[in-house]
Protein backbone atom coordinates (compact mmCIF):
# COMPACT_ATOMS: atom_id res chain seq x y z
CA UNK A 1 0.00 0.00 0.00
CA UNK A 2 1.29 3.39 -0.82
CA UNK A 3 0.33 6.84 -1.87
CA UNK A 4 -0.37 7.31 -5.52
CA UNK A 5 2.34 9.41 -6.92
CA UNK A 6 3.35 10.58 -10.32
CA UNK A 7 6.43 8.94 -11.64
CA UNK A 8 9.38 11.01 -10.71
CA UNK A 9 13.07 10.62 -10.95
CA UNK A 10 15.93 12.53 -9.50
CA UNK A 11 16.21 14.49 -12.73
CA UNK A 12 12.70 15.91 -12.65
CA UNK A 13 13.07 16.75 -8.97
CA UNK A 14 16.18 18.70 -9.69
CA UNK A 15 14.33 20.61 -12.36
CA UNK A 16 11.81 21.65 -9.73
CA UNK A 17 14.68 23.16 -7.79
CA UNK A 18 16.10 24.80 -10.92
CA UNK A 19 19.33 22.84 -10.65
CA UNK A 20 20.89 22.29 -14.05
CA UNK A 21 22.81 19.07 -14.17
CA UNK A 22 24.34 16.97 -16.84
CA UNK A 23 24.26 13.23 -16.42
CA UNK A 24 27.02 11.90 -14.23
CA UNK A 25 27.29 15.00 -12.10
CA UNK A 26 26.87 14.65 -8.36
CA UNK A 27 24.82 17.19 -6.45
CA UNK A 28 26.23 18.58 -3.23
CA UNK A 29 24.19 20.84 -0.94
CA UNK A 30 26.00 23.42 1.18
CA UNK A 31 24.23 24.35 4.42
CA UNK A 32 25.27 26.35 7.45
CA UNK A 33 24.52 29.16 9.87
CA UNK A 34 25.04 32.74 8.64
CA UNK A 35 28.54 34.13 9.28
CA UNK A 36 30.30 30.77 9.23
CA UNK A 37 32.27 31.39 6.05
CA UNK A 38 29.87 29.32 3.95
CA UNK A 39 30.28 31.54 0.92
CA UNK A 40 34.06 31.46 1.32
CA UNK A 41 33.92 27.67 1.09
CA UNK A 42 31.56 27.95 -1.87
CA UNK A 43 33.87 30.36 -3.69
CA UNK A 44 36.97 28.37 -2.81
CA UNK A 45 35.49 25.16 -4.21
CA UNK A 46 33.82 26.47 -7.34
CA UNK A 47 36.06 29.40 -8.27
CA UNK A 48 34.56 31.27 -11.19
CA UNK A 49 32.33 28.41 -12.29
CA UNK A 50 29.20 29.67 -10.61
CA UNK A 51 25.96 31.31 -11.47
CA UNK A 52 23.16 32.80 -9.45
CA UNK A 53 19.41 32.90 -9.82
CA UNK A 54 16.34 32.53 -7.68
CA UNK A 55 14.82 29.50 -6.05
CA UNK A 56 11.74 28.66 -8.11
CA UNK A 57 8.82 30.76 -6.94
CA UNK A 58 10.78 32.32 -4.09
CA UNK A 59 12.61 35.62 -3.79
CA UNK A 60 15.58 33.86 -2.25
CA UNK A 61 18.92 33.94 -3.96
CA UNK A 62 20.22 30.64 -5.23
CA UNK A 63 23.86 30.15 -6.09
CA UNK A 64 25.25 27.07 -7.74
CA UNK A 65 28.65 26.24 -9.07
CA UNK A 66 30.63 23.27 -10.24
CA UNK A 67 34.02 21.73 -9.63
CA UNK A 68 35.98 18.64 -10.53
CA UNK A 69 37.71 16.34 -8.12
CA UNK A 70 39.61 13.38 -9.56
CA UNK A 71 37.35 11.91 -12.24
CA UNK A 72 34.11 13.33 -10.89
CA UNK A 73 32.25 16.56 -11.59
CA UNK A 74 30.20 18.04 -8.76
CA UNK A 75 27.44 20.65 -8.71
CA UNK A 76 27.55 22.61 -5.48
CA UNK A 77 24.29 24.27 -4.39
CA UNK A 78 24.64 27.04 -1.82
CA UNK A 79 21.61 26.93 0.48
CA UNK A 80 20.45 30.04 2.37
CA UNK A 81 22.30 30.52 5.66
CA UNK A 82 19.98 29.47 8.51
CA UNK A 83 20.16 28.65 12.22
CA UNK A 84 17.62 25.88 11.93
CA UNK A 85 15.54 23.89 9.46
CA UNK A 86 12.23 24.14 11.27
CA UNK A 87 10.75 26.21 8.43
CA UNK A 88 10.18 29.38 10.41
CA UNK A 89 11.21 31.51 7.45
CA UNK A 90 11.28 31.15 3.69
CA UNK A 91 15.04 30.61 3.83
CA UNK A 92 14.69 27.76 6.28
CA UNK A 93 11.96 26.19 4.19
CA UNK A 94 14.04 26.45 1.01
CA UNK A 95 17.05 24.87 2.70
CA UNK A 96 15.01 22.09 4.27
CA UNK A 97 13.09 21.29 1.09
CA UNK A 98 16.30 20.98 -0.88
CA UNK A 99 17.97 18.66 1.61
CA UNK A 100 14.97 16.40 2.03
CA UNK A 101 13.36 16.43 -1.42
CA UNK A 102 16.10 17.14 -3.97
CA UNK A 103 18.00 14.14 -2.70
CA UNK A 104 21.52 15.60 -2.93
CA UNK A 105 24.39 13.10 -3.11
CA UNK A 106 25.88 14.77 -0.06
CA UNK A 107 25.02 17.64 2.25
CA UNK A 108 27.94 19.62 3.63
CA UNK A 109 27.19 21.62 6.80
CA UNK A 110 29.61 24.46 7.52
CA UNK A 111 30.05 25.32 11.19
CA UNK A 112 31.95 28.00 13.08
CA UNK A 113 34.56 26.49 15.40
CA UNK A 114 34.32 29.47 17.74
CA UNK A 115 30.63 28.95 18.31
CA UNK A 116 30.10 25.24 17.81
CA UNK A 117 27.19 24.65 20.16
CA UNK A 118 24.86 26.96 18.25
CA UNK A 119 25.98 25.47 14.95
CA UNK A 120 25.47 21.90 16.12
CA UNK A 121 21.76 22.63 16.40
CA UNK A 122 21.62 22.83 12.61
CA UNK A 123 23.96 19.86 12.15
CA UNK A 124 21.73 17.67 14.30
CA UNK A 125 18.68 18.70 12.32
CA UNK A 126 20.40 17.85 9.05
CA UNK A 127 21.56 14.43 10.23
CA UNK A 128 17.97 13.68 11.17
CA UNK A 129 16.92 14.17 7.55
CA UNK A 130 19.74 12.47 5.69
CA UNK A 131 22.65 10.20 6.44
CA UNK A 132 24.87 11.58 3.69
CA UNK A 133 26.27 14.48 5.67
CA UNK A 134 29.75 15.94 6.04
CA UNK A 135 30.37 18.42 8.85
CA UNK A 136 32.96 21.13 8.23
CA UNK A 137 34.39 22.85 11.28
CA UNK A 138 35.54 26.10 9.73
CA UNK A 139 37.34 29.17 11.09
CA UNK A 140 39.84 27.04 12.98
CA UNK A 141 42.28 29.97 12.80
CA UNK A 142 39.85 32.20 14.70
CA UNK A 143 39.34 29.40 17.21
CA UNK A 144 43.11 29.07 17.72
CA UNK A 145 43.36 32.80 18.22
CA UNK A 146 40.64 32.61 20.85
CA UNK A 147 42.27 29.56 22.42
CA UNK A 148 39.34 27.31 21.62
CA UNK A 149 40.13 23.69 20.79
CA UNK A 150 37.77 21.36 18.98
CA UNK A 151 38.36 17.61 19.15
CA UNK A 152 37.42 16.77 15.57
CA UNK A 153 37.93 13.01 16.00
CA UNK A 154 35.63 12.90 18.94
CA UNK A 155 33.03 15.02 17.18
CA UNK A 156 33.10 12.61 14.23
CA UNK A 157 32.64 9.70 16.60
CA UNK A 158 29.77 11.35 18.45
CA UNK A 159 27.93 12.51 15.34
CA UNK A 160 28.56 9.40 13.27
CA UNK A 161 29.33 11.43 10.13
CA UNK A 162 32.66 12.60 8.61
CA UNK A 163 34.08 15.79 10.13
CA UNK A 164 36.63 18.02 8.37
CA UNK A 165 38.46 20.94 9.96
CA UNK A 166 39.15 23.90 7.66
CA UNK A 167 40.34 27.45 7.37
CA UNK A 168 38.47 28.20 4.16
CA UNK A 169 40.05 31.60 3.68
CA UNK A 170 43.53 30.17 3.42
CA UNK A 171 42.43 26.93 1.77
CA UNK A 172 43.48 24.77 4.72
CA UNK A 173 41.59 21.48 4.81
CA UNK A 174 39.76 21.97 1.52
CA UNK A 175 41.49 19.06 -0.23
CA UNK A 176 40.48 16.84 2.61
CA UNK A 177 36.92 18.12 2.25
CA UNK A 178 36.89 17.37 -1.49
CA UNK A 179 38.17 13.87 -0.82
CA UNK A 180 35.41 13.28 1.75
CA UNK A 181 32.78 14.66 -0.60
CA UNK A 182 34.09 12.35 -3.31
CA UNK A 183 34.08 9.32 -1.06
CA UNK A 184 30.60 10.00 0.22
CA UNK A 185 29.01 10.82 -3.14
CA UNK A 186 30.62 7.73 -4.69
CA UNK A 187 29.26 5.54 -1.92
CA UNK A 188 32.69 4.62 -0.58
CA UNK A 189 31.68 5.65 2.90
CA UNK A 190 28.26 5.20 4.42
CA UNK A 191 27.83 7.33 7.53
CA UNK A 192 25.42 6.24 10.22
CA UNK A 193 24.55 9.39 12.12
CA UNK A 194 23.72 9.05 15.81
CA UNK A 195 20.07 9.90 16.29
CA UNK A 196 18.92 12.34 18.90
CA UNK A 197 17.11 10.70 21.78
CA UNK A 198 14.06 12.74 22.67
CA UNK A 199 12.30 12.65 26.02
CA UNK A 200 9.81 9.89 26.67
CA UNK A 201 6.80 11.98 25.75
CA UNK A 202 8.18 12.81 22.32
CA UNK A 203 9.53 9.30 21.71
CA UNK A 204 6.08 7.87 22.51
CA UNK A 205 4.55 10.08 19.85
CA UNK A 206 7.21 9.06 17.36
CA UNK A 207 6.63 5.39 18.11
CA UNK A 208 2.93 5.76 17.40
CA UNK A 209 3.28 7.76 14.20
CA UNK A 210 6.39 6.41 12.53
CA UNK A 211 5.11 2.90 11.68
CA UNK A 212 2.06 4.44 10.01
CA UNK A 213 4.26 6.71 7.91
CA UNK A 214 6.57 3.94 6.79
CA UNK A 215 3.53 2.18 5.32
CA UNK A 216 3.11 5.12 2.98
CA UNK A 217 6.43 4.37 1.24
CA UNK A 218 7.54 7.92 0.64
CA UNK A 219 10.78 7.01 -1.07
CA UNK A 220 13.95 8.12 0.67
CA UNK A 221 12.15 10.41 3.05
CA UNK A 222 13.24 9.65 6.59
CA UNK A 223 10.17 8.38 8.44
CA UNK A 224 11.32 9.26 11.95
CA UNK A 225 12.03 12.79 10.86
CA UNK A 226 8.70 13.12 9.07
CA UNK A 227 6.91 11.81 12.15
CA UNK A 228 8.64 14.49 14.20
CA UNK A 229 7.55 17.20 11.79
CA UNK A 230 3.94 16.07 11.89
CA UNK A 231 3.98 15.92 15.69
CA UNK A 232 5.61 19.31 15.63
CA UNK A 233 2.62 20.66 13.69
CA UNK A 234 4.80 21.76 10.79
CA UNK A 235 2.37 21.92 7.90
CA UNK A 236 4.88 23.26 5.40
CA UNK A 237 6.17 19.71 5.15
CA UNK A 238 2.79 18.62 3.76
CA UNK A 239 3.15 21.32 1.08
CA UNK A 240 6.61 19.97 0.34
CA UNK A 241 5.41 16.39 -0.04
CA UNK A 242 2.69 17.49 -2.43
CA UNK A 243 4.92 19.75 -4.44
CA UNK A 244 8.02 17.64 -4.75
CA UNK A 245 6.83 14.06 -4.45
CA UNK A 246 3.80 14.63 -6.65
CA UNK A 247 1.46 13.21 -4.06
CA UNK A 248 -2.10 14.48 -4.26
CA UNK A 249 -3.81 15.01 -0.97
CA UNK A 250 -7.54 15.56 -0.92
CA UNK A 251 -8.94 19.05 -0.32
CA UNK A 252 -10.72 18.04 2.83
CA UNK A 253 -7.47 16.75 4.24
CA UNK A 254 -5.67 19.93 3.32
CA UNK A 255 -8.28 22.19 4.86
CA UNK A 256 -8.08 20.15 8.02
CA UNK A 257 -4.33 20.58 7.97
CA UNK A 258 -4.44 24.30 7.32
CA UNK A 259 -6.85 24.73 10.18
CA UNK A 260 -4.36 23.08 12.48
CA UNK A 261 -1.62 25.20 10.99
CA UNK A 262 -3.54 28.40 11.60
CA UNK A 263 -3.74 27.52 15.26
CA UNK A 264 0.02 27.17 15.46
CA UNK A 265 0.76 30.35 13.60
CA UNK A 266 -1.32 32.68 15.75
CA UNK A 267 0.65 35.81 15.27
Amino acid sequence: MGLTRQSFGAASLREKFAISTKSGQKIIALAGNPNTGKSTVFNALTGLNQHTGNWPGKTVLQAQGSFYYLDQEFVLVDLPGTYSLLANSIEEQVARDFICFADPDATVVITDATCLERNLNLVLQVTEITERVIVVVNLLDEARRKKIQVDLGKLEQELGVPVVGTVARSGEGLDDLKQKIYDLAKGRINPKPTMIKYDIRVEECINTIEPLISELHLGRLNTRWLALRLIDGDMTIIEGIEQYLGVNLSDSFKSEVSLEWAKVQVN
Binding site: L116, E117, L120, N121, L124, Q149, V150, D151, L155, E158
Partner: peptide, 12 residues
Protein backbone atom coordinates in the same frame (compact mmCIF):
# COMPACT_ATOMS: atom_id res chain seq x y z
CA UNK B 1 22.16 17.31 22.67
CA UNK B 2 24.12 20.16 21.03
CA UNK B 3 25.14 21.41 24.45
CA UNK B 4 26.23 17.94 25.52
CA UNK B 5 28.23 17.46 22.31
CA UNK B 6 29.89 20.84 22.61
CA UNK B 7 30.88 20.10 26.18
CA UNK B 8 32.54 16.88 25.10
CA UNK B 9 34.50 18.18 22.10
CA UNK B 10 35.26 21.84 22.81
CA UNK B 11 37.84 23.04 25.30
CA UNK B 12 38.10 26.72 26.01
Amino acid sequence: RAEELAERVVTK
